[in-house]
């Protein structure tokens, strides 16, 4: 007499035996369809975190918590000739360009930025690699700059174009990233020109870097050259919204 229990048992056991193979099966990890499916988690994460956090502030710390070994990741010394020239002159000729879908494009000097409403915050910097450092940042509120530039209604994202390339060569692919308007107008989102009460050091992104306290370090553009308001970033780089995003990292780096 055929035993349905036994058949189910064999089927199940076969499936289970295949389980450990999954892990070592690198072809699955390369498969595009699989990657697409896995990427659905990012949307779920973004939606739920936005619903939970709304405009909540990232935790802030005290002077005594500041790390004396704050690590600098990515590029630490841009090679681009235009950057070198600005740097040689202490960034006196630096102009932050704000353009794209704005009513009033801006070109802001460091002096302009320092005169704007600022915010100072001691926050943690969480690297995608897993480490954390704590630093004190002072910078111009991005919301203020955006109100001056007057975003057009079709603007959905801000793209940060930067001077640096990870290869630290003149012709290397330049770093860029993008954020949406919820983060752009967040209270703690600033363009920092000071770190730990001193002028922002080169390795941490001089003359200005983005602080985006509710996401990971790879979203916090250093050496910012230009902020472009766009409706979509599909036409920029490889279309995923940033240098690291083009290389498989999540666009929403809240986790």
């Amino acid at each position: 007499m055929p035993n349905p229990d036994r058949r189910r048992l064999l089927l199940g056991a076969g499936g289970l035996a295949a389980l450990p193979l999954l892990g070592s099966c690198d072809s699955l990890a390369r498969n595009e369809q699989v990657q697409c499916t896995l990427a659905t988690a990012e949307k779920a994460t973004k939606r739920s975190q936005r619903a939970l956090a709304r405009q909540a502030l990232a935790p802030e710390y005290e002077e005594k918590d500041i790390s004396d070994d704050f690590r600098a990741n990515g590029s630490v010394d841009p090679a681009a000739a235009e950057y070198r020239a600005l740097r040689a002159n202490n960034f006196r000729d630096y102009r932050l360009i704000v353009d794209g879908l704005v009513e009033r494009p801006l070109a802001l000097s460091l002096t302009d930025l320092r005169r704007m409403p600022s915010r100072t915050q001691i926050t943690k910097h969480d690297c995608v690699e897993g480490w954390t450092s704590i630093g004190k940042w002072k910078g111009a509120r991005l919301s203020h700059i955006l109100r001056q530039a007057r975003l057009r209604p079709d603007a959905k994202y801000l793209v940060f174009h930067c001077f640096d390339a990870l290869s630290q060569t003149e012709d290397g692919e330049r770093y860029y990233t993008s954020i949406d308007l919820v983060d752009a107008f967040h209270e703690q989102t600033i363009l920092a020109y000071e770190m730990n009460d001193e002028i922002l050091p080169i390795k941490h992104g001089a003359p200005i870097r983005l602080r985006l306290e509710r996401q990971l370090g790879y979203k916090m553009a250093k050496y910012v050259k230009r902020i472009e308001a766009v409706e979509s970033f599909a036409h920029i780089g490889r279309g995923k919204g940033g240098y690291w995003e083009d290389r498989g990292y999540e666009w929403y780096a809240g986790v």
């Binding site: 975190q49 956090a53 935790p59 943690k124 954390t132 996401q215 809240g254």
Partner: peptide, 21 residues
């Protein structure tokens, strides 16, 4: 607790364990 997004939404989660690390 390791998620900076969650740290903003619920800071107590890392406070009670003594920090993100």
């Amino acid at each position: 607790g390791m998620s900076p997004g969650m740290n903003a939404a619920a800071p107590w989660m890392i406070e009670i364990v003594g920090g993100r690390q």
